[in-house]
Simulated assay, not measured.
Amino acid sequence: MKQRIAVIDFETNGITPGADCRATEIGIAVLENGNIVDRFQSLMNAGVRVPPMIEQLTGISNAMLASAPAADAVMREAARFVGAMPLAAHNAGFDRKFWDYELSLLGLTRTQDFACTLLLSRRLLPEAPNHKLGTLTRVCRLPDTGCAHRALADAEMAANLMQHLADTLRRRFRVGDVDHALLCRLQKVAAAKVGLFLGVIS
């Protein structure tokens, strides 16, 4: 993809953002012209506790967060880093709600849409055994970006997957110009109607 897209991943201490459920790490990979050209990553101390199950999953401990920068400072820096770039994530509904919540605590509001590589992969890679990020990375033979369930590694995996999906659109469906707006439209199309949708625009 030619345009710059900010692919975001959060690690959190729970599922639904709120006073006791906050982001603990953010990773952002900037995709441009098929390559990751910039990165942002930081732990975030929001004053919340990480349950043992999540610490085991992510490797992010309460001790690590105690010395991490304050969440509001990290989010201000992340918002400046992203600017007006279009946004994307794998299972974007999850990351979008944490992005929006953390921004709201700063009095900021998101203006960009999120493209979702999970929804897109369900439409473009129906043959995959499942549509988890790690599975798709292996099935599509994408680069190993490091430790899964750490924010930057997952953001880079999602960025590589987004480029693979764009390449799939060009190769399999002969779509010439793949951009963020097209992906946002495509992810809303019923899986059974993808061929018809792409046949009209190609």
Rank of each mutant, 00 (worst) to 15 (best):
F81N: 05
R96H: 05
A63H: 04
T117D: 13
D100S: 04
P126D: 14
S67C: 10
N91P: 05
R76L: 11
F98A: 02
A70D: 13
A68L: 14
L124S: 06
D9G: 08
A88Y: 02
M44E: 01
F81G: 08
L103I: 01
L106C: 08
R39K: 15
G59H: 07
H90G: 12
K97G: 06
F81W: 09
A70G: 09
F94G: 12
F114K: 01
A88S: 15
V7H: 07
V37L: 15
S121W: 15
M85A: 12
S67H: 13
I5T: 15
S104Q: 11
N45S: 13
A84C: 03
S104R: 04
F81L: 07
P69C: 00
T111K: 11
S121H: 12
T111E: 15
A89S: 08
V82C: 04
G93E: 15
F10Q: 05
I26A: 10
R22V: 00
N33E: 15
S61K: 01
D113M: 15
E55R: 05
G59I: 07
T117N: 13
L119M: 13
A66G: 07
A68E: 15
D95T: 06
V30H: 07
Y101W: 14
A73I: 06
R49P: 14
F81H: 07
G59N: 14
M75N: 02
G93M: 14
N13I: 00
G18L: 10
T111V: 10
Y101L: 00
T111D: 14
A6Q: 06
G34K: 08
P17H: 03
G47Y: 00
L65R: 06
E25D: 14
